[in-house]
Design a protein around this nucleic acid. Structure first.
Lengths: 350, 350
DNA sequence: GTGAAAGCGCTAACAA
DNA sequence: TTGTTAGCGCTTTCAC
């Protein structure tokens, strides 16, 4: 019923349990011959160290936590997937924490018990050695609680004060997307973003909007407010926002920069619903590198989310090793413009 | 650095550590007054029980494992998400295991070390009290290893011999989809499925294909082989399969049943690429209930994946309680036809 | 390079 | 109802 204990291995190998522990942990102070005998004994008995016992004795659990605000959205799970691979290959298990975003309409913080429990209970159970935060906005209190854990913490995609962060430069990402449209001759460029429903301080949409504003300003093009609307990072939200962007006012934009691919699918659909041809009547560019963008011909900026997760995980593993240097405070990750058929030069004959 | 220990709580509350343990575990044999004092002491000290210590002493880790073949595909993460919610609300942590599918071209099982390590090492670390398998095909050996753990195991979506399973009836799902098309007057109905790349024994596509065959047979319509092609459960695969389905032979099907929504996006795109209007020239129906299907107007069969995960998790929690009855060997979950604008009555004037 | 022994922080008999 | 005590299965000094 229970697994084989270290004692059996010690007996079979004719050594003490201390030696078995050392040998299996790869400690240097074990002779090659002994190590071989121990490994063979362990192998033949199917012995695997008990996570709880080892964790209690050593204080290290060999598991790391990944915290994300959404458990089933492509970007987040892709980051997670990349991190998971790196961590499990290094012998760590992964515990998944769902950190529910604080909603804008709950600005007084009276709700979100689940999030409170996460920081006040779950993390204190000391089940993990380190934590990877994916696109999370923390309050100062939450950051203090994390710090109090005394464990390595790394953030992906959303810089946190005092926490090493790996992210693309979202402002530059957005600027690059808009610049692509500008280079194609577009001037009347709309923005579909996604600030609305979540997180008090969800920075990514803000930065993408800022990049849009910056690129337009550099091109000397004024941005009118009815040219920017919020989807909520869903296809349906993108559809609604695009319907407004494309029907408000007396003229129509010739291009739209959409802050995520999944919203862009909704934008493409809205264009079709209005009888607009893409890219002849309207150019559309997204962000993320979502795989369905391929068949839909969506031009996008791929930010390689799985690689982001892998990079964050490697930084964590580095910190977990006693004598490794700490990761830099903030590291910028690469991204890549992928031109497909949803963007084209401005048609001058309109 | 380390958390507060049970001893401090005991001192502050003026009781023994055993009583603290009992009180905090909600054991009945504690007086209301004592319990209150203990809880207050724990609260004021910010005490949370150590997962490792509690796990070692009790043999229960209060964590459950979720095993899935893909960590970043919508269906799987949705199931996971539903299960995660139920489990964390019940006070359990979730450890995520990636069980890499065995590829068809690796039929001799010489590779896939990661999968081997999962069953021969990770699971033996006894980090979890129970296991939820999402759409997994196990070998007999793997099943034996799971059984040897002596822990509750529940499967979602893919029946496993000897393991309680929750799933939609995939044959009926497929049959319903095809029947919807038949009811609209279609006779020449193609199939885009997805057997190719993974898992020796990946049953879902097989069942969906069987449902298609059955519905067609019942309608007395022969199925010709060039009317069925495999995508690989990706949009790109769906696109390629549809291109073949729509261009091979001298006539074109008037409808396509696609075994997943994400493939169906590729099918819609292929239709557009060929200048076919949906639904006027071609009806398309998918399966899953993927959210982007909403804006794309994709008719589908929603199988409520998050609910599937929640249901599986509840069954596991039931088994974790000593005196609960075991879940039934196989339970069929509901699904729902959602008619949108990608399907329409057969146009007789062609 | 290896062993003896003392915990790690809890839980679960067993007593009282 | 509560306290005492013996582990749970490892890791890690400290000796040798």
């Amino acid at each position: 019923m229970n697994g084989v204990s270290i004692l059996k291995v010690a007996e079979l190998a004719g050594v003490s349990t201390a030696t078995v522990s050392r040998a299996l942990a790869g400690k240097p102070s074990v002779s090659a011959a002994t190590r071989a005998r121990v490994e063979e004994a362990a192998q033949s008995l199917g012995y695997v160290v008990s996570a709880t016992a080892s964790g209690l004795a050593s204080g290290r659990t060999r598991s790391v936590g990944i915290m994300m605000p959404f458990l089933n959205r492509w970007f987040f799970t892709s980051v997670m997937s990349g991190a998971h691979r790196v961590l499990t290959d290094a012998g760590y298990d992964v515990t998944l924490y769902h950190c529910e975003p604080n909603r804008l309409d709950d600005i007084h913080g009276t709700e979100n018990d689940r999030r409170a429990r996460l920081f006040q209970e779950s993390l204190l159970r000391r089940r993990v050695d380190a934590l990877l935060l994916v696109t999370l906005s923390l309050t100062a209190t939450e950051r203090d609680r994390l710090r109090a854990l005394g464990k390595p913490v790394v953030a992906i995609d959303r810089p946190q004060p005092g926490i090493p962060t790996f992210a693309v430069d979202n402002l530059t990402v957005a600027r690059s997307a808009v610049t692509h449209l500008l280079d194609l001759g577009h001037r009347d460029i709309a923005y579909v973003g996604g600030v609305i429903p979540y997180d008090l301080d969800f920075q990514v949409p803000v930065l993408r909007r800022a990049g849009y504003d910056a690129a337009m300003a550099e091109a000397g093009i004024p941005v009118r407010s009815h040219r920017a609307h919020d989807g909520d990072f869903t296809s349906a939200g993108g559809f609604d926002a695009a319907m407004r962007v494309l029907t408000e006012g007396t003229t129509r934009p010739t291009a739209i920069f959409v802050a995520s691919d999944e919203m862009a699918y909704g934008v493409l659909s809205a264009a079709a619903a209005l009888g607009l041809r893409v890219p002849e009547d309207l150019s559309v560019i997204g962000v993320d590198g979502h795989p369905t963008g391929d068949v839909l011909g969506l031009t996008t900026i791929d930010q390689h989310p799985a690689e982001q997760g892998a990079t964050g995980a490697r930084a964590l593993l580095g910190e977990l090793e006693p004598d490794a240097e700490h990761p830099p405070a903030q590291t910028q990750l690469p991204f890549e413009l992928i031109v497909r058929r949803s963007t084209a030069p401005l048609q001058t004959s309109r």
